[in-house]
Simulated scan of single mutants.
Amino acid sequence: MSGPPPPPGPQPRDESLSRRRELASLLGPTRAAVLLIVADRPGSTTNALAEGVGVSAATVSHHTTVLRRSGLITTRRSGGSVHHCLASLGEVLLRGVGEAGRNA
């Protein structure tokens, strides 16, 4: 077996399969997919993330709460929408995963 499958949903253009798998093994496939989409599309709403990952908005809301409490993303409310952006720690994590993939 070659490790966990890539996260569900569309993948950012510049992410390698091995990087997605490494991140999914750390965070879980859905949370990894959410984090990668937020990194690729800052300001994504909960509904846009749900559509991109292929899960319900409630499921995405749960995952974004965990990512926010972990310091990987930030969120802000604007009217009835919640927008998500990558936090500094999230940037460091993604950079580190990318470096690990190149050094493997």
Rank of each mutant, 00 (worst) to 15 (best):
M1H: 15
S2R: 10
G3A: 04
P5F: 08
P7A: 13
P7I: 00
P7D: 09
G9P: 10
P10T: 15
Q11E: 10
P12D: 03
D14E: 06
D14C: 01
E15A: 05
E15K: 05
S16V: 00
S16W: 02
S16F: 07
S18A: 13
S18T: 13
S18I: 13
R19D: 04
R19P: 07
R20W: 09
R21F: 08
E22F: 01
E22Y: 02
A24H: 00
S25A: 14
L26Y: 02
L26M: 09
L27G: 00
G28S: 02
P29I: 01
P29E: 05
T30F: 03
R31Y: 02
V34Y: 02
I37W: 02
V38R: 01
D40H: 06
S44T: 15
T45R: 12
T46M: 11
N47H: 12
N47L: 10
A48P: 02
A48G: 11
A48E: 15
L49P: 06
L49V: 09
E51V: 14
G54L: 03
V55Y: 12
V55R: 14
S56D: 12
S56L: 13
S56G: 15
A58W: 06
A58K: 09
A58R: 09
V60A: 14
V60H: 12
S61Q: 06
S61F: 03
H62P: 09
H63L: 10
T64F: 08
T64Y: 04
T64G: 08
T64E: 04
L67V: 08
R68L: 13
S70G: 15
T74I: 03
R76Q: 13
R76I: 01
R77Y: 11
R77Q: 15
R77P: 11
S78G: 07
G79Y: 07
S81Y: 03
H83L: 09
H83Q: 13
C85Q: 08
L86H: 03
L86S: 02
A87R: 05
L89Q: 10
G90T: 01
L93D: 02
L94E: 06
L94W: 07
R95N: 12
R95T: 07
G98E: 12
G98L: 13
E99G: 01
A100W: 12
G101D: 14
